[in-house]
Design a protein around this nucleic acid. Structure first.
Lengths: 363, 363
DNA sequence: TTGTAGGCGTTATCAA
DNA sequence: TTGATAACGCCTACAA
């Protein structure tokens, strides 16, 4: 039951060949007779051999150099992704994975394509891209892939490209979820609904709006959805804009599909509007967490930034090594947070916490 | 930038000592002069050394033998945890971690304590326990801990014991979440609410009920919560019982705090009641997923079984190695699923999927 | 108190 | 087509 795991040596012995031959079979290298391959195979099956990947990486001297390309905005959500990349490095440091990041002028297709084009395939083995879906970006990704670099699209999918995976949520469903929740929360109430979208040239916001509208029109015809407002990134500008919008009568709800909640929350709390309206935002950030706490927000639709980062890393590594992954683990969930189920920071404080390499123990 | 990572050899060279001395300092072993320790420390800092834990484990020949103790019920939720343990083994096989599991007569304190007491600390380095909180269980855990075995409480906390961590959700908050959602979904409607609880002698169900009641009484006084019904595990029995309960007038909602939705869903669909009632259940299982799809369930409060398993394993390993963990990653979220944000099986099918050790490549 | 040498499981470089 | 043999980064006898 506790018997030590079989190793290549065991296989070699059982198959009556040398280590080198076993290795050739294991790694599908040429120069082995079919008969010999069969002998080795048989031994592998018989012993139930499973390769020790850590030892393999050690011997190979393999390092995983990964790059995250993120939009260069002050957006709370993007900032939290950056933070999680740092956390990852701190915790997982020393597992032969190095994660770098670069910020690119907010969804500027030329810039993004340029950066991708300049990636040295000998240096970076995998890239996670949070960027716009344009022909130039697509072509740059396809060239990267041709050069053997693993690629995942982050947050906003790039389905027309050759990216290996998409790491993020289905934004149409996220929009539908927001819509359903809003409709049910409002119940029999009728009125106008303000919708705020991001200024990004990205699929994610368009898709959220689409999903939201689908549900609202289909299931809650009593609510009147106003035309989308493209939210400026500067919180102060947004506040001004909102005060004009709220001059209208009969507004009963707000749906913000952006990942930046600063301007909206500041406006609502300043105007004392939060309590009376049904407000649903995106991404659990400091601002939205607070807004849930005070009752300004009724719900937040979110995707876990830490999960996005770790999932990207795992998928890139799996792609590089051509090994399988667990799709359930990599599926990013569309989180719904109410005040009641919001993960509290206090909860985390009770645990040992993320400690650095320790004064006397650089593990 | 890509410079190879520093190794013990580099430290030895820079500090002007031997590998063995470096190792002694790294592992805090005795027999090194303070001056030497300082030299080594300095070299470590200077080079920014981070230990390669995989190599360390390889050298040590370390294996992690972990044991999951689960209640022996046909419960869908427990079954899904078992499944995730198998998935973990399949995917993570070969990372020097062996996960075993044992089923214990459903929440029988004597049995559980007996099993825990019989664990050989030389064989198992870590144990995850999903069991009842009784003095005998607590004492058995405390003895285990004294023998140097890492212990986590799974799903249902054992706070009075010496367990190292709790892996699961805050069930009071989960109950509150269900209550809030139900209250808001019902809006102005009034009526009676049926509550189903598990037959387990466990904290989790008591806590859920507590949280649920708190919110209902505090925020939705128009709803009348009926006394809890302890649901029998046999679906057929539960159906019978429910048909008697539903003879009452004016029932507008059902909250089931169990993780087994078979009997309830079968009853509701059989009686054609799903659509008109507001129904909230726990745990995303085949049954509840289906019930969301058809509209029988309005929402499901859940905790990710895969996350529970992986988190337990990571925490046990971190405890065994005395290394830090990422509390954000280990925090189990209280998931809310509506039909709209339910992870679909189809979504997973598009990916490569969990493949076995492959015919020609036992990686 | 310190150092040397060998080994963990795998891969890679030779030579046979 | 095969097999010795030396790495990889770390740990652990045992020797000095």
């Amino acid at each position: 039951m506790t018997g030590e795991a079989p190793t290549v040596n065991d296989i070699a012995r059982v198959a009556g060949v040398s280590l080198a031959t076993v290795d050739r079979v294991l790694n599908g290298r040429p120069g082995v007779r079919a008969v010999t391959i069969e002998k080795v195979r048989a031994a592998i099956d018989e012993l139930g051999y499973v390769r020790d990947r850590a030892a393999a990486n050690l011997a190979r001297g393999r390092f995983y150099n990964l790059l995250f390309i993120l939009p260069d905005s002050g957006d709370e959500f993007v900032t939290s992704i950056e933070q999680k990349i740092r956390d990852f490095t701190r915790i997982q440091g020393g597992d032969r994975t190095r994660v770098h990041k670069i910020r690119v002028r907010s969804f500027d297709p030329k810039e993004v394509a340029g950066i991708i084009g300049r990636i040295n395939p000998r240096h970076f083995h995998g890239v996670a891209i949070f960027g716009p879906e344009t022909p130039s970006v697509r072509d740059a990704i396809d060239r990267l892939k041709k050069n053997g670099v693993a690629v995942v699209a982050l947050v906003s999918d790039l389905p027309s490209s050759a990216r290996d995976h998409f790491v993020g949520i289905d934004n149409i469903s996220a929009g539908k979820t927001a819509g359903k929740l809003m409709g049910r929360f409002l119940g029999a109430r009728r009125g106008r609904v303000v919708v705020l979208t991001g200024s990004r040239l990205a699929r994610d916001h368009i898709e959220r709006r689409l999903g939201f509208d689908t549900v609202m029109q289909g299931e809650f015809p009593g609510l009147h959805i106003l035309p989308s407002i493209e939210a400026p990134e500067d919180p102060a500008q947004l506040r001004q804009l909102l005060s004009r919008v709220f001059a209208q009568e009969d507004i009963c709800a707000v749906y913000s599909s952006t990942g930046d909640n600063r301007g909206l929350v500041e406006f609502l709390e300043g105007a004392g509007l939060g309590e009376s309206l049904t407000v649903i935002g995106h991404e659990l950030t400091d601002m939205s967490r607070n807004a849930l706490e005070t009752g300004t927000f009724d719900a937040v639709i979110s995707q876990d930034a830490g999960h996005l980062v770790r999932s990207s890393v795992r998928l890139l590594r799996a792609q590089i090594d051509a090994v399988p992954h667990d799709p359930w683990q990599e599926l990013i969930r569309i989180d719904i947070f109410l005040k009641e189920n919001m993960p509290s920071l206090a909860e985390l404080a009770e645990t040992p916490g993320i400690v650095g390499p320790g004064e006397d123990d650089p593990l």
